[in-house]
Structures are given as structure tokens and as C-alpha cells.
Design a protein around this nucleic acid. Structure first.
Lengths: 357, 357
DNA sequence: CTGTTAGCGCCTTCAT
DNA sequence: ATGAAGGCGCTAACAG
């Protein structure tokens, strides 16, 4: 094995000059060629391919044989043009951060199984991307914040199938949505901080203003506070946007302003990570001096210093369910208006557990 | 803002019954409609759309106006069918792990800029997926190990544009490739372990057998050993596949077998992470008892305990360059046969630096 | 500079 | 069960 690899040594001088390839000569074998070779009509071949009518066994066999012999591959664009179906699904996201990896995996697994192509597009324009519109896909998966409300309504007018991820539909638009349970888990997390670790001045580092997850996580935080008779102190809440650097800056700001606190609840793990960095730079020990917790249980969170206490959001499952919903929608099968996936507390050490015995 | 979000409360009972949407009625406004409304021929509209010939200013304005008024969107499939160009590029990977996030970002940025759609497909079949073939894309980005050699050659026969990522082409196939410099960096990394930290029994935890990166990283390791007069001990090398769990098991195995070692070089960061876990479970302190280093500098690596000493591979840049190469190929412009991106040592603390002052 | 027209590859009625 | 033929929406000669 090593031997075979060795000859692949990147010897730059080995390549004498630049490559220049000729245009792809796509095999122009059409359904007509198959029909002729098999001695049948194109209609028959088409019927066989799409199983759209019964074909006599012998003819079927003959067609199948010539198709494989000729390496025939139906021209998707021609099919799409003729049928007005694309057999493709789109996914629109704002960016391609690590966070999405599991979701991609989940989505991909069901779209592939269902026989759809998957087109992924990342953009922060919030506009309906033509490349993922009606002519190009049969439906669209929209991650929160990646599409403006106007675009959403427009899509709805066109009866274009859409399912929202981590975002509920505007107004009374009947767009299905799949997301996770935020509030109850958030409450339990803060309960834990208060009851188990005696924290009383807990900072909440928000996500983006228009993010529903962050909103409900904050509601859980507030209710936990109230349930324990702790006052809600606006000073302890800071804006953020799920970015590490921003969370770090916000934490530094709190520290500099001399605001007293003994715990930080980041709206997501990324945010918690930012807080962790800021605290460390400032010489505050985590979790001895201040507890830090997050939300999502991203892959890295278990490996942080200290391992992050957080809430596990079933991100891959969210992807699977959302994709399944969209497939159902496209196939005219009934779908759930809302799928709220359960979350689960993950106690590690950044809250203080494990270090005190 | 919170108010507007509040009404979106996930009140499951609020949705009385299941949704059932009607099939998308894609706006069937064709180029013909535009032509009629604008009082010109379809050819003129087509010319205006594709800038394929000059159109008188006034006519252009009129066409433009009616296009926006009618919300006309060209039917991509029809264009593709007529032109035999898809204006799309494919990306084939084995899986959708975190590792790819930066690469996706890099690729997406250039394909979008160049006006191509991007189709992503993950599969371990190593077969040429029809959905990314000649009829569906103008070219394909192939990540190492996701396509069999036979498929590669077949694609080559068809003159189908391909660029390989982290893998050199088989035989003398003229397929451009973009990857990173492995050997020199690996050597410097091991030099560091030996010279700065006095390590002499260094384990190398391999990647997959058919992975070139791992091969060259091992070559660098061997040369560094040789340069310092240290023997190459086969006992210190274990198989792996870039998976954390496998690396963890391999490390445990070494420990159990009583093989003495004072450092572990993981073929990638994921592998190093596995070693870290195993060592911790076994009560070996990192870096006091054993140094651990990796390769890639994945996003999480800086946040590990202790922060991982590794080699930074410019993954996003790899994506950008590969995509750019493919665009050039498709556009019949010259491309480099091989792009070898520089890597850089990233000294953190898992090697022992910083903890001893 | 503009219009007419013949396909691109496939599906799908309508006959047979 | 099978063929023949008309489109799907657009582009690209070819005329003018």
C-alpha cells in the first residue's frame, strides 16, 4: 500500500506544464438510441424507466439489457422539463459552521433515501434564491433567519413546499416547523445552577434578537430565577449572536464594568465557549469561581476545559425530521404543523459538578 | 422584539389539525409571455437574458421591465437542455463531519461568485453518483477516497472535468489536485518533540491505509527520527482511520501491551483527541507524562485539554483553490496540475510547551 | 439589430 | 401492451 502511494510523490517538477482539458463530451446516448437498439419505441422505454405502465417481461428485459450495455443515463433536465418535477430538495442556511454538520448528515440521509437530490445554499441575503426556487427544487428546507418574512409569504403564495427549521412561521402561515424544546430544559439547567451549586447571580448571554431558541431559553432562565425567589437583574443579561468572539467581548465588558456574578449561561455552546475564554483571561477559575453552561451540546463541548455542562439538542434528528416533513409535503402526504424534539440535560464539569466530589 | 416572538409560543394545541398543502404551482411564465408583453420575439428576450448579442437600449429596457413585472424566472432545466450546460458543480465527499465545514465555506464562496450552483453529495459507495454526473453538473470536486479509481478513469474518458482534493490522480491521468504540504511540517513537529521536549519513544497513530496525507505525515515522522539517530520501531506505529474511537482503542491497546512511549503523534487532530481520552482514562498526564500532537488544527483543537499542538492545514483555502481550479477547467482556462498549500506549526500545550515555563 | 424556426431529451396523451 | 406525435421552455442558427 505504501509502495503504491509512494509513486504519487508530489514532485512538482514532474508535471511539466499546465493542464488544458477539452470540454466534456457528455455521452449523448438518448432514450431514442435505447429504443432503436432494443427494437421498441421510446414510449416503451420511458414506461419501463418510470414504471408508469406495465411492459411485457421480455421487452422489459431487452430494454434493461440495452440500457446497461449503452450505459444509458436519463437526462435529468429533459425529465424535469417534461414533467415539471425536479426531484430535488433545497436547503438554505446562513453559513456553513460546524454546528450544521450533524444536521446535514440527518437531512442527507433522508433525502437520499427518498430519492431526491439535495441542493445546499448558504447566503445571508434572506432573499429567495432563484437556484433553490420552484424551477430548481420541489421544496425547500429553511434554517432560521435565512429567509425574510416577505420571501416566506411569497413562497407560500406560490404553494411552494417549505419547512422551517428552528423557527416558527410568521402570522398564520401554514408552514410546518421542526425545532427543539428550549424552555423546560433551560429552566432545569438554571435550577441546577441554583440548587446544586448555590449560584445566585447568573448571567444570561443572549443569542440574536430575532432567534426564538434564545428567546425561550431566556424565558426558562427567568422562570427558574423566579421559582427560587431570585430577582431578574437586567444587568446580568447581555446581547450576543451565537459567535464566540462576541460572547467573549460581552463577558469582558461585564467583568470590566464590575458587575458581580457567579455563573454564566450562554445561549448556545459557542457563546459559553466565548465566556470561558474571557473568564480564563481574566483569571477567574471555572467552575470554582464561576460556573459556565451552554446549550446544544455541540461535538466539541465534551472536550472543553472543563467539559461543558449543557443541554443536548438532537441536531441530527432535527435534520432528519425536517427532511422527512418536506418529503411528505412534496408528496402530498400529511405533515405535522410542529415537531418539537425533546432535549436533555448534560451535566459535566463546567457547572461545578465533579470538582467538589 | 420579544413581544413579537412571544406570540410564536409553541402551543401545540393551537394547531388544530395536520397540514395538507397542494402541489406547487410554479409560476408558468415563460420567455414567450415576456416576449409577447414586451412586443418582441423570444429570441430577443433570450439574447437580452444571456447577453449573447447586442439589443437596442430601448428594447432592452422594455424587456427588463416586463421581466420584473411578470416576475419571470428562466427555467433552468430548459436552459440546460438547450445548451447542454448545467451551470452547476458537484462536490463528492464520504461524510459530512465537522472537518468539512471550512472546506464547504471555501468552496461555496467561489462557486457562488462564479455563478455556479453547488450540489453536495456524501456517499461511501465510491461510485460515480448519477446525480453528480455529466448531465447534472459541469464538473466535480472529489474529496479523497470518495471515488473508486475505475470511476475516476471513466470520468476521464468522458472528458468530464474533475479536481481531486487531498488525493493525487492515479497513473498518469491528468486530473488536477489540490492538497497540503504534509511531510515537512510533520518532520518539524516531530523535531520539536525530540529537541524541545526530549521525547524519544514517539507513537505514530496512522490514518486510513490509502490516505496520502497520513502516508506523508508518517514519512516526515520517520525522517525526523532518522535525523536524530532514533530507530524506527514498528511497535510504535498503529493503524487508524481518523476516527476518535479507533484512535482511543489503539492507544489503550498500546498501553495494555506495555509498550513504552513518551509521545503520541496522531495522524490528524481527531486521532490525537482519541489518544488524549485514552491517556486520561489510563491516568497518564498530558503533557507531563506523554506529549500528544495532531495534524490539521481543526476548530476544536485550540480548546482541548490541554490545547493541542498541531499543524495548521488551510482547509478553507483548500476548498477555495479546488473550486477555482474546477471553474477554470470548466471554462477551458489553464489550471495547475498540483496545488500544494503550505502548512504551519502551531505550538500549544499538549506537547509540553507552556507547562514547564 | 430583430424575427422565425428547428431542435435539446424526455414524457404523455391518443390511437392501435 | 405498444407506437406515433405533440409539447415542456429555451437557445441558436439562419434569414432579413
Amino acid at each position: 500500500m505504501l509502495d503504491s502511494l509512494r509513486k504519487a510523490h508530489y514532485n512538482v517538477t514532474g508535471y511539466s506544464n499546465r493542464l488544458q482539458m477539452t470540454r466534456s463530451k457528455a455521452s449523448s446516448i438518448t432514450i431514442r438510441d435505447v429504443a432503436r437498439h432494443a427494437g421498441v419505441s421510446v414510449a416503451t422505454v420511458s414506461r419501463f424507466i418510470n414504471q408508469t405502465a406495465t411492459v411485457s417481461p421480455e421487452v422489459a428485459a431487452r430494454v434493461q439489457a440495452t440500457m446497461t450495455e449503452l450505459r444509458f443515463v436519463p437526462h435529468a433536465s429533459a425529465q424535469r422539463l417534461a414533467t415539471h418535477k425536479t426531484n430535488a430538495l433545497g436547503l438554505l442556511v446562513e453559513n456553513l459552521h460546524d454546528y450544521f454538520s450533524p444536521m446535514f448528515t440527518g437531512i442527507e440521509s433522508v433525502t437520499t433515501t427518498a430519492g431526491f437530490d439535495l441542493l445546499i445554499s448558504s447566503s445571508h441575503h434572506k432573499e429567495f434564491p432563484v437556484t433553490l426556487g420552484p424551477h430548481n427544487t420541489d421544496g425547500l428546507l429553511v434554517f432560521w433567519g435565512s429567509l425574510s418574512e416577505a420571501s416566506l409569504m411569497h413562497a407560500c403564495d406560490l404553494h411552494f413546499p417549505i419547512v422551517l427549521i428552528h423557527q416558527s412561521p410568521p402570522r398564520e402561515l401554514a408552514i410546518p416547523c421542526v425545532t427543539v424544546e428550549n424552555k423546560a430544559a433551560s429552566m432545569r439547567l438554571v435550577d441546577h445552577l441554583i440548587e446544586r451549586h448555590g449560584r445566585r447571580r447568573i448571567v444570561y448571554l443572549r443569542g440574536p434578537d430575532d432567534n426564538e431558541d434564545s428567546y425561550w431559553r431566556e424565558m426558562g432562565y427567568r422562570e427558574a430565577l423566579a421559582a427560587h425567589g431570585l430577582p431578574f437583574d437586567p444587568q446580568l443579561v447581555a446581547a450576543g449572536n451565537y459567535e464566540r468572539a462576541v460572547a467573549e467581548a460581552a463577558t469582558c465588558q461585564l467583568l470590566r464594568a464590575g458587575v458581580a456574578f457567579d455563573a454564566v449561561f450562554g445561549a448556545d455552546d459557542e457563546t459559553a465557549l466565548g465566556a470561558l475564554s474571557a473568564l480564563r483571561s481574566a483569571g477567574r477559575r471555572v467552575p470554582q469561581d464561576v460556573s459556565v453552561v451552554g446549550f446544544d451540546d455541540q461535538r466539541m463541548s465534551a472536550y472543553l476545559t472543563p467539559p461543558l455542562t449543557t443541554v443536548r439538542a438532537p441536531t441530527e434528528e432535527v435534520g432528519r425530521r425536517a427532511a422527512q416533513q418536506l418529503v411528505n409535503l412534496v408528496r402530498q402526504k400529511p405533515v405535522e404543523p410542529l415537531i418539537l424534539l425533546p432535549t436533555e440535560l448534560v451535566i459535566r464539569q463546567s457547572c461545578g459538578c465533579g470538582s467538589e466530589g
